[in-house]
Amino acid sequence: MSRRILVVEDDQDTQAYLAKALREAGYTVEATASGRDGLVHAIGGGFDAMVIDRMLPDLDGLSLVRSVRAAGIQTPAILLTALSAIDERVNGLRAGADDYVVKPFSFAELSARLEAVLRRPAETKAEQTQIACGDLELDLIARTARRGDRRIELLPREFQMLEYLMRRQGRVVTRTMLLEGVWDYRFDPRTNVIDVHISRLRRKIDAEGEQALIHTVRGAGYKLAAAI
């Protein structure tokens, strides 16, 4: 059964684009331009996630999320904002949103983050000590990595990046997600720093003649997968 997404966005173009792209990605979409309508829908329930614009003409996104949470509804919510992420993100999270995407965003970014909030509950279930992807194995206790018989020497930060990718294997991870997940930075350094880190990591993980595990997803980010 396809997941139901509520989209509250007052800009008609963005709303139409989002609805179309989400439907193409296999979601069922309910879209509205009004914050009040959005609130009614959200409280009515039945959604797997909500995508809410931060600035709406009638009821702003923050208040909407706050009201929904006050009504005891925990549906994951992603706020879209044209404001700077540096300080606004904290306000969004305080209001009860699960994630924050700064406009203009690529659909790949939103989609990756939507995936993340939809899967979040499953992740926290088990305390894993090992993660594997194909013949790549990560020991979370010893903080070591191995591919087949080959032991891989990783710097602490490289280990963190790999762990982040492996926990989300098969899914797209964007550069900003890596920056947030590994460095805890919410700003965009606007240079290719993450790409350089990834290509270094890739040189260590995917040696000559081995099957590539770290894949570049054009226009979106990276994906760790045994097979595409």
Binding site: I86, D87, R186, F187, P189
Partner: peptide, 18 residues
């Protein structure tokens, strides 16, 4: 201070140096 804003400032300085 604000950790994110300070990190942004320092990253600007390092980026500039780079």
């Amino acid at each position: 201070g604000h950790d994110q804003i300070l990190a942004l400032a320092v990253s600007n300085l390092v980026d500039n140096a780079l």
